[in-house]
Design a protein around this nucleic acid. Structure first.
Lengths: 182, 182
DNA sequence: ACTTGCATGTAAGTGGTTACATGATTGG
DNA sequence: CCAATCATGTAACCACTTACATGCAAGT
């Protein structure tokens, strides 16, 4: 799923600026699971406007630069729906942490333990974020469904890591210097 | 994690050709969770050789083109370990299926149901693949650990989808033509 | 006869990131 | 006084994919 589709999916639910879309793609993390940068969002919106899938109006602000508020057009809605009707891409999952885990044996136990703890913390932070999203505002039933899917998956990941992390640290390389920092 | 690191991680465990690395990155799916193409692997290996992180020897074969077998060097091992010692990147998860799920309300129920079933099938195919990998050959304890992590996560995803997919299809747009094909 | 698997590699294109340029306002 | 937030956009760069070029052997 590219930035173009990301923009359409967000605009489908209401107006937004490029800045808003960036924020939603980073904070409102559940929506699509893509993190996009300004450098890709602004050109994508410009292209969408040329293609007639979105329109924009400029809202001046005192002091701050003018907001360029984008809205989706009927053609945009159609194009987005069309994309969902076509064949779906595969899910992608990439975990630098699991790569590290595989090579625990060549790493000091302290590092493996620290990284496992960090990963656990990131997992529970994600869970918290999803719970907040579900609780507060503007979540359709489908959004709830997706959030609960995410929570279920994150939940077992947390459980597994919590109950099995000591097995992993035991596989790590015994650290030669035990008295050093920490 | 880039293709360069992928190559080092595979060569760390033994010799391989570019062709082998491609196969392992697609079939031996658990290793790192990156799928790479020839167009990225061959240049990456060439660069690694120039940098002195791997060496190669050419093994002629009757009829087939010669295999160019790469081996990791001590410098390569160090460089790879160094990379694992540095700060870890974030996990990435992208799911076109979950995007479709969010927009179930604008899609025909038949499509949503079909996609859900396809997704379920892909999840159980992945689980089977992991189980096979764990059962058969050449899996270190750390590999087993990673595989079990994957199985735990895939397992709940399957469960959730199986028990909640009818809720999702109920959210879909009632299809106007009920008597058409199927 | 055709497709698949083995095996290497290049060239063109794509889709993104990072860093830069600009600038006022608010809060610590 | 400095950093962060709001807000837009461009330019240089990078990693990777797709398609191409080549070719033999074995299976269906």
């Amino acid at each position: 799923m590219n930035v173009r589709t990301l923009c359409l999916s967000i605009l489908y639910e209401g107006e937004a600026t490029g800045y808003d879309i960036r924020r939603l793609s980073v904070e409102g993390e559940f929506a699509y699971f893509v993190e996009a940068s300004f450098g890709s969002i602004y050109p994508a919106l410009a292209k969408l406007e040329v293609d007639g899938l979105v329109t924009s109006r400029t809202v001046p602000q005192a002091g701050k630069p003018a907001r360029k508020v984008y809205s989706i057009t009927d053609a945009g809605r159609d194009a987005f729906a069309e994309e969902l009707l076509g064949p779906l891409g595969d899910d992608v999952f990439r975990s630098p942490f699991l790569l590290l885990a595989r090579f625990a044996r060549i790493l000091p136990a302290e590092l493996v333990e620290q990284r496992a703890k960090e990963h656990l913390e990131r997992l529970s932070a994600s869970t918290r974020k999803l719970t907040d999203l579900a609780g507060e505002g503007s979540c359709s039933p489908a959004d709830q469904w997706v959030i609960n899917y995410g929570r279920a998956v994150l939940g077992v990941a947390e459980d597994y890591l919590r109950t099995h992390m000591h097995e992993l640290t035991k596989l790590a390389k015994a650290d030669p210097r035990k008295d050093a920092a920490e």
